[in-house]
Design a protein around this nucleic acid. Structure first.
Lengths: 334, 334
DNA sequence: TTGTACGCGTTATCAA
DNA sequence: TTGATAACGCGTACAA
């Protein structure tokens, strides 16, 4: 069943049928009805390949996810999937290592699949600077700020990582902690980690304190890395009554490490994470964290991308609010 | 850059170029070299849309995932992604609700996308019986047994759920537990749940015991559902020293519920899960569980599907071994 | 072994 | 408002 058959059955020509199917203006109501009647009756479906061939681009949306271990992204991907399943755009999801270049990968995929748009889950300025100019499709960086990058086709949706991190630190500070360890990503490679780090320094500064570099532990974003890094930190033996982990996955691994060292959370060591993973509420103790609004992140990203694709709207940059989620893993230090 | 350009630049004709690109036999080594040289030099990429149009089917592989809350599937999807990223087949991943028909959804998607093959993550016999005949593409049911369904294009890869569940129960029994609650899926809709339930009954039978129906709590596969169901079970007040949760996500939610009720795991109530989620090792207590080999599950599924797609090999049904993972959430009952 | 020519299903341009 | 027809890039009979 092709539009050719549709033309025959409906008594109209190919051109008219195509116009009906694409909602073009210059077509009589009568013709529209006639064609649609056959469509309903025969269950006709347009051949995407032919359409794409003609239009010389694909019909999918590409999602490049940075880091397999980061559950936050899993949450966002799920939401994105739910949103896009209501549209006619198939999703191509591509996972790359946390330390690889998402832009390089996206550029390659764009050449191959010619997607309508691309969504970056995580990304670093350096990579964008280097080769984002190679990609033409409207894109949005989710979980990162692309405002200063100033690419006309690159939007961004994120929380304020600096303030979020500062908020976490301040919470720890206000709870009486002074000996704080920070577990975060590689600050050279990850903007998010760098900006959150700056937030930490800032928060400390506001209290007249300075951050001791040796208290920053570089860590991949995964349960295991959190566990291993915290184990090492404990072994190093710096005084420590609280830990700020830049991701909940890291925090969860760290808590396990603390417990295995015979210490308790939060009575011996308080832990605050970042992300607001769903599982946090089912742990013991419930994880205190800076919650990212995954739903808002996903919805805004999708809306912006769709606007760009369908209506050619220009890039936008939106900041969605984080929230301090005080649960059970942080305690007043006496 | 099309094969037309390639033809011009290489000095050969369109036909020869196409043959080289598709690895056809009747082409001289000289021609092959000449064409490939230009391909390398110019970075030519074949137009998938045109190719697909010509061959009247897509080039992607469809994955239908049943249930958004089931982390096991997330693990498997990740592995699948890693495997297929090494091939030229894009993955289209579609999540549906745990209680919807995966086969119905797949059939619709097949009409639309004409994928080369489809992977079902979770699925129930009833749905397959009803409309799997509508789908022609080679498929594999991951995490379910399709042997008796006897479709020529449906393979399956799974662990032995009956034995796995029996193993979990026996472990509890051997640990001295008699008052055991079981939290699992809807046995009418989910074959996996039904079969695991049968395993429970069987294990009990081997010990001369019978399963009291009121001890089975129906529960969706998610942290929250596990938490809520366990809370309700605790409220019901049946004597209980151990819980078998048919999924780790359920077990994790249940453990939280138990703790909130002021009881301890495992000293008051032992809990064993099913799946072997990565996070299990970072919890307190570490989760004892029946571990499914996600890697083997993914690898076998991919291999079978690829064999079917590329070499037309017939359906296969493989059982991969589960393993009892004794960690910290189950204790001897005195 | 190589080249030519046609058709896949669609959109878009132009004339009617 | 409608219809005829030319591309889009590729695979493949068929001819050479």
């Amino acid at each position: 069943m092709t539009i050719k058959d549709l033309a025959r059955e409906s008594g109209y020509s190919l051109g008219t049928v195509s116009r009906v199917l694409n909602g073009h203006p210059n077509v009589s109501e009568k013709a529209r009805k006639a064609v649609m009647a056959v469509v309903e009756a025969q269950g006709f479906e347009l051949n995407t390949n032919a359409k794409n061939l003609k239009q010389s681009h694909g019909d999918s949306i590409l999602i490049v996810v940075k880091g397999r271990g980061n559950e936050l992204f899993a949450d966002i991907v799920e939401r994105l999937q739910a949103i896009f399943s209501a549209t006619r755009y198939p999703l191509i999801i591509d996972y790359i290592d946390e330390l690889d270049s998402e832009v390089h990968r996206a550029a390659a995929l764009c050449r191959e699949k010619k997607p309508l748009g691309v969504l970056f889950l995580g990304g670093s300025r350096m990579n964008f600077l280097e080769e984002f100019s190679k990609i033409q499709a409207p894109s949005v960086l989710v979980t990162g700020d692309a405002r200063e990058l100033n690419f006309p086709n690159l939007s961004s949706v994120t929380t304020d990582d600096r303030e979020g991190a500062a908020c976490a630190m301040e919470y720890l500070l206000q709870s009486g902690h002074r000996d704080i360890l920070v577990l975060g990503g590689n600050r050279t490679l990850s903007d998010t980690s760098r900006v959150r780090y700056e937030g930490c320094v800032e928060a400390l500064g506001r209290s007249g304190l300075t951050f001791d570099e040796s208290r920053y532990y570089t860590c991949r974003y995964s349960y295991r890395a959190g566990y291993e890094t915290m184990t090492k930190a404990l072994y190093d033996g710096l005084p420590c009554t609280a830990v700020f982990a830049m991701a909940d996955v890291i925090a969860i691994g760290a808590i396990r490490a603390i417990r295995e060292a015979g210490r308790h959370v939060p009575s011996d060591i308080s832990v605050i994470g970042y992300d607001g993973l769903g599982i946090g509420d089912f742990l013991l103790p419930k994880l205190s964290t800076i919650a990212q609004p995954t739903e808002a992140l996903a919805e805004n990203s999708a809306a912006i991308l769709l606007d760009a694709i369908e209506s050619g709207k220009p890039a936008r940059h939106v900041i969605v609010p984080y929230s301090l989620s005080c649960k059970e893993s942080v305690q007043q230090h006496i």
